[in-house]
Design a protein around this nucleic acid. Structure first.
Length: 196
DNA sequence: TATTGGATCGCC
DNA sequence: GCGATCCAATAG
């Protein structure tokens, strides 16, 4: 309680910078079944029309429309027919970009998270974008939700992150030269980071 | 209308 | 290493 919710101007900054700065902050999900929170451990940046790894690379479509809108909204989509991914839209309206949140360290709501995940091992609860969405009850109904609202948001709890590792993004080998961009970030040595 | 493949996961 | 599972995007 008493933590500062990130405001819209945080999300308006350049995407790569926003991706780095989200590490160590806390994702908060307010759900009818309960509140869950977790420290963000791993992120990726998807930047502009040119980025062939981004859903926006082929222009605006019904699915990716939120990426073209104003910063500070959630872009949630279904992948592989069975998982969801959560992004925070960044940069000025009209410029399609977002930060994919790939892993958190669950904090509050552990019992609810374990029930949703049907797992006990604390490292396996939210280690990967699909697992994270399952753990936090994030589904497509949340696509387009305002991250400056009361349902899904990020708090700055002033945690100083340990060393940050920078690598290439996961699962984008189809993206030609863009697969080599160093746009994945995670907290060094943390067991909750997803494996490749 | 039909086909293709994916910003994944967990088990074999 | 591979199958699950389905829908958005593209081609026909």
């Amino acid at each position: 309680m008493g933590f500062v919710k990130l405001a819209r101007n945080f999300y308006e900054q350049p995407t790569v910078q926003a991706a780095r700065m989200l590490l160590g902050k806390y994702l908060v999900r307010v759900h009818p079944d309960g509140v869950t929170t977790g420290m963000i451990l791993e992120t990726e940046a998807y930047v502009g029309l040119e980025d062939k790894a981004s859903h926006a690379s082929r222009g605006r479509t019904p699915r990716n429309a939120v990426m073209f809108g104003p910063a500070g909204f959630a872009y949630v989509y279904v992948i592989y027919g069975m998982h969801h991914c959560l992004n925070a839209v960044t940069e000025p309206e009209g410029y399609p970009a977002a930060v994919l949140i790939r892993a958190v360290q669950p904090c509050e709501g552990l019992e609810l998270i374990r029930a949703r995940r049907r797992k006990q091992d604390s490292r396996m609860l939210a280690n990967g974008p699909g697992n994270l969405c399952q753990a936090f009850g994030i589904e497509r109904g949340l696509n387009g939700v305002d991250l400056c609202g009361d349902v899904l948001f990020v708090e700055d709890r002033k945690v100083s992150p340990a060393d940050i590792v920078t690598t290439t993004r996961v699962g984008v080998d189809y993206a030609g030269p863009w697969k080599d961009m160093p746009w994945r970030f995670y907290i060094a040595g943390h067991p909750g980071v997803s494996k490749r």
